[in-house]
Amino acid sequence: MSEIAHGSSEHGSAKSYVIGFVLSLIFTFIPYYIVVNKVLSGDALLATILAIGVVQMIIQIVFFLHLGRERKPRWQLYFFIGTVGAILVIVGGSWFIMKHLHYNMTPDVSKKLIEKEGIGQLGGKDTGACTGAYTLHNVIIRDGVVSPVLTEARYCDRLVFINNDDIVRDITFGAQENPEDYSGESNVVVRKGRAKTIILNQQGTYRFYDNLAPDVTGIFSVKPADQK
């Protein structure tokens, strides 16, 4: 057995695997706890979970892969370090460049200002911007059936039309004989198998129907945000 036991990278004892396993479990549950219980948010949360992810990787590399414990010259270690360098350039560089490009190239700038930056007024007019937490309400259309038919939501919640059918849905607001706009839009086109989200920034009760198949219809009612 000895010729194999001495071959290649150093291997670990059962103890090293147990230590690695326990540490990995700890560093899995810590970020899970932080995320699920919303202990942190925003950049602090992102930095924390990424840091823990890197710690987790190092634990597994040391205790499971036993990298760096091979005989000299340590080609595996050097190759690994070089790869990590390349990865940092690829992932970090892509993220850095695309983040800026993306932000500055969004086609509808005013829409971005209203939705992302929460600009409440534009040119003296109320924009109806919604910011902060919200609840998502799914309206699923399958085989021409809308479910649920009535959605009760609060101001600034999101309504998601999910079209599970093989035809396009032209969701039009209002009743068939009397179409009306919702939040400045007369309709939402949901292609087959796709979903579309609208922001409920106008209160009241509204009907909607598929302009191409008017019997596909439903209602949503938007109550003030504070009303439980």
């Binding site: 949360l45 992102l46 990424l50 992810g53 499971f64």
Partner: peptide, 17 residues
């Protein structure tokens, strides 16, 4: 397993940032 750690971190937990 190491690749999955990053999927868990970036894709799943990262979605809640």
């Amino acid at each position: 397993d190491i690749v999955w750690i990053f999927i868990f971190t970036i894709v799943y937990m990262g979605a809640f940032v």
